[in-house]
Design a protein around this nucleic acid. Structure first.
Length: 822
RNA sequence: GCGGCUGUGGUGGAAUUGGCAGACACGCAGGAUUUAGGUUCCUGUGGUAACCCCGUGCAGGUUCAAGUCCUGUCAGCCGCACCA
């Protein structure tokens, strides 16, 4: 231990020793309690940013602490390494995506190691490697065999700039999540995963996941968007045809005064053919097609539409009502047709006002302020049924069930559940992804590759165009497949998979990363799964976290894993901000981790990030704050350096003699208690660190005293180093060695709080009069309520009560005495 | 529009169960050390001249006691949004 703290030298020294001794390696050990700690693996962009450092510093603090507490901690790392940036870089620099990816990963591993993170590097998993994507393909085939992967032609989201399709989840405000281009629609035949089959389970499990933040659960609930209602059939007037609508408000059926079809509704062609409206309707449909989703779904836009010269019969009252087409009705939700109830739906109200349709109120608000026969807006709240035949007088909530049951019995309605969730589109017209292992045979249709033909390797003889079809199609040989059924030539699929497929099961591969026979062995997954603590950014609340749940659920149904939900506890860390906004190149407010590590060392960077804010909250970067963390480490280092020599060889058995001894022992043990609790259960590292700071302050005071108990001081010093080690491991190893230990503190035992040291002989209590602090006094720590009430008779208290009448005494032992006076 | 979160000194934040608001830091001020600056160590630091008093976005309420519970309201952030 040098006299001066040299972060660079200390950190390099210990990283080397950790690597040589391979101290972070773990295996299944049935004797120990396991803990699977997982941080979301990064995309290999080339460099770590502060968000990564925060994510991994949080994980590392938890992992190191639990490890010292005796848990068998699985803490792996990998790279989500397929994806578009590698392909774009390849086009730009005329190289291969693998070259770019590999170089980036190497650099990022160096950076990760430089932060001193406790990963079992032997489990490194990279999704672009053949030994990973082979099993990705194998898993895809299992999904296909179970009927959960299918190919279908559909209008899909197309990003003209990325030249590929996007999943619904990847379209944000009608724009491409990645590049911000306006997304257009295109009819393409694409592969889908049938996530909608799992909608109810994905939804219901959320109620039983206390370890997840409400925010994330709520976002997933909204995204799944389950809504219960009914389908109702309307007869088309004069035609032998019915139109089916979905409604959650069947109670308003008597108030239907028109019907609206989506312009894409399959009946529209037939209904307008030869009608006077045909030209106008076609023009309208053309216009809709041209509009982007953003324009079309703008809620502020005035309602538009065309009457198509047709009528339907309201099954409730036999009334004939007109049929329109309008773009406010979406083809991909419900049935693509809506019954218009202007009295009780605001959108219908606006439409009816514009097109002159009747407004018939059927739910009375029972509110003198609202004139039900002259509504200014749709009334959507609860009320009493009117104008609805035999249902009049009922509460409308009850009417929903009554009307549905009656019409169901007549065969013209049916209880239905609708979801906003769509099937997951996973085809991508790109090269740098996992090839979809399917072939198309003229006779047998789409068939999976035989297991022995896996992996379907990414071809090397391709041209990167960045346009249109998958670059894989430019390979002269790749498409020449063989039908596994008849052995005749079959055309191989040229699209690759969405990279969210890769990240939907990587946590399982970590359990058994070198398996060459299967994706992972069940017994190993059973030992480690599920993930006890998952840590990552909130931006994955819907996409990754729902896909991974779906995937794991299917694997559960296939008997490959034993837990239905993959992530028991989820921690979503806040963003790292600088000058009030997210660090970004365009704003020029980026602080590079390398910069900080080179100037102050990794320990300082880690300490600052953990100390400056609790993990879920946003973290404002502060240069002076970093400086402060560095100063604190120096302060600790000096303290330990000054004491190290004296501490060595001193027995740790001691008795607490003086008031100061007791005060230090109290500071020590309350720090142990608070750090243990804050790190492993609350994840409030900021308060854990402040507890350690208090201990350090107390130790500085204590060591200057005349009468110093060296056994106590040595014990405090040693425990201080252990407590601090999950946050700043390098400097702590150095100090630990300085205290005479030859083994790494990574496997040292976590300090245990001595509750006896926390028991005080006397405590200061507060004397309040009518709730305001008026005096303080020292009393025995184990004082009873009765004894506290007697304190009123003491002179010091009595003097406060002159001229007042005591009404009531509220004693709170150990805390305060409140005297209520008049 | 719907849903979620957040609002505390000059700043980041603390107060775990309703019980002394502002722990711990940053910053600032003063002192000691130093030729000086920096470092280090110590002291002070919500407002107010001040004890009283006032003070956790705002307005009410419950309670002996409210940052914490209830009602209403405002602001900011995030997500969803013509989802029938």
């Amino acid at each position: 231990m040098d006299q001066r703290y040299n972060a660079q030298a200390v950190e390099e020294k210990w990283e080397k020793i950790w690597a040589e001794k391979d101290i972070f390696a773990v295996t299944e050990d049935p004797e120990k309690k396991k803990f699977y700690l997982l941080e979301m693996f990064p995309y290999p962009s080339g460099n770590l940013h502060m968000g990564h450092v925060r994510n991994y510093a949080i994980g590392d603090a938890i992992g190191r602490c639990l490890n010292m507490q005796g848990y068998n901690v699985l803490h792996p790392m990998g790279f989500d390494s397929f994806g578009l940036p590698a392909e774009n870089a390849a086009i730009k620099h005329n190289t291969h995506p693998a070259v770019w990816t590999k170089a980036n990963i190497e650099n990022m591993i160096t950076q990760l190691k430089r932060l001193g993170l406790s990963y079992d590097w032997d489990r490194l998993t990279e999704t672009y490697k053949v030994d990973y994507y082979k099993w990705m393909q194998w898993l895809f085939i299992q999904f296909f065999k179970k009927g959960l992967a299918y190919k279908k032609e559909n209008p899909v989201n197309w990003c003209p700039s990325c030249a590929t399709v996007l999943a619904n989840e990847q379209v944000v405000d009608g724009k491409c999540e990645r590049c911000g281009s306006v997304v257009t629609k295109k009819n393409l035949s694409q592969w889908y995963m049938k996530i909608t089959d799992y909608a109810d389970r994905l939804l219901d499990d959320l109620d039983d996941m206390p370890g997840w933040p409400d925010k994330v659960k709520e976002q997933q609930r909204n995204w799944i968007g389950r809504s219960e209602g009914a389908e109702v059939w309307f007869d088309l007037d004069g035609m032998d045809r019915k139109i089916n609508v979905f409604t959650t408000r069947i109670d308003t059926l008597f108030g239907v005064t028109f019907m609206v079809l989506s312009p894409e509704h399959p009946f529209v062609e037939e209904l307008i053919a030869g009608q006077p409206c045909e030209a106008a309707a076609r023009a309208y449909m053309e216009e809709c097609k041209k509009m982007s989703d953003i324009e079309r779904t703008s809620t502020t836009k005035e309602k538009t539409g065309v009457f198509i010269d047709r009528y339907v019969i309201n099954p409730a009252n036999g009334k004939k009502v007109p049929v329109f087409i309008s773009d406010y009705v979406l083809i991909n939700y419900g049935t693509g047709a809506v019954m218009g109830v202007p009295g009780h739906d605001q959108r219908d109200f606006e439409f009816a006002t514009k097109f002159g349709c009747d407004i018939i109120p059927v739910v009375d608000p029972q509110d003198p302020e609202i004139d039900v026969n002259n509504l200014k807006a749709a009334f959507v709240a609860e009320g009493i049924m009117i104008n609805s035949g035999k249902y009049d007088g009922m509460n409308n909530k009850d009417a929903i069930e009554a009307i549905r049951n009656d019409f169901e019995a007549k065969g013209i309605a049916k209880k239905t559940v609708n979801y906003k969730l769509r099937d997951w589109l996973i085809s991508r017209q790109r090269y740098w992804g996992c090839p979809i292992p399917m072939v198309y045979c003229e006779e047998h249709g789409w068939q999976p590759e035989k297991d022995e033909n896996l992996p379907v390797l990414l071809p090397e003889d391709v041209v990167f165009t960045g346009k249109g079809e998958s670059p894989i199609a430019t390979s002269p040989t790749f498409q020449n497949g063989v039908c596994p059924i008849c052995g005749k030539p079959a055309r191989r699929e040229v699209d690759t998979m969405d990279t969210f497929m890769d990240s939907s099961w990587y946590f399982l591969r970590y359990c058994d990363p070198h398996n060459t026979e299967m994706p992972f062995a069940k017994d190993k997954a059973d030992y480690w799964m599920n993930v006890d603590q998952y840590i990552g950014g909130i931006e994955h609340a819907i996409l990754h976290l729902m896909y991974a749940r779906f995937f794991n659920m299917v694997l559960y149904d296939l008997g490959m894993v034993s837990t239905e939900e993959p992530f028991k506890n989820l921690l979503t860390q806040g963003m790292v901000l600088k000058d009030g906004s997210k660090m970004s190149k365009s704003k020029g407010n980026v602080v590079a981790p390398d910069e900080i590590v080179n100037k102050y060392g990794a320990d300082t960077a880690r300490l600052f990030i953990l100390f400056a804010a609790p993990p879920e909250r946003e973290l404002e970067w502060s240069d002076t704050g970093v400086e402060g963390s560095y100063k604190f480490l120096n302060r600790v280092y000096r303290l330990v350096y000054d004491l190290a020599e004296e501490c060595r060889g001193i027995p740790r058995t001691y008795t607490l003699e003086t008031k100061d001894d007791k005060q230090l022992a109290y500071a020590l043990n309350s720090a142990i208690k608070r750090v243990s609790n804050d790190v492993s259960t609350r994840f409030n590292f900021n308060t854990a660190i402040s507890a350690i700071m208090e201990l350090v302050n107390e130790m500085y005071r204590y060591k200057e005293l005349e009468d110093v108990n060296m056994g106590l001081l040595a014990d405090s010093t040693e425990k201080l180093v252990l407590l601090l080690s999950p946050f700043v491991p390098h400097i702590c190893e150095e100090m630990w060695e300085g205290l005479g230990h030859s083994e790494s503190l990574y496997h040292a035992q976590w300090p245990v709080c001595d509750e006896k040291a926390l028991v005080k002989d006397s405590v200061e209590i507060v004397v309040q009069i009518n709730g305001k602090v008026r005096s303080r006094m020292d009393v025995a720590a184990d004082i009873t309520r009765e004894e506290m009430e007697k304190l009123v008779e003491q002179d010091s208290v009595k003097s406060l009560l002159e001229g007042k009448t005591v009404v009531k005494l509220i004693p709170v032992p150990g805390k305060l005495l409140n005297i209520v006076v008049r």
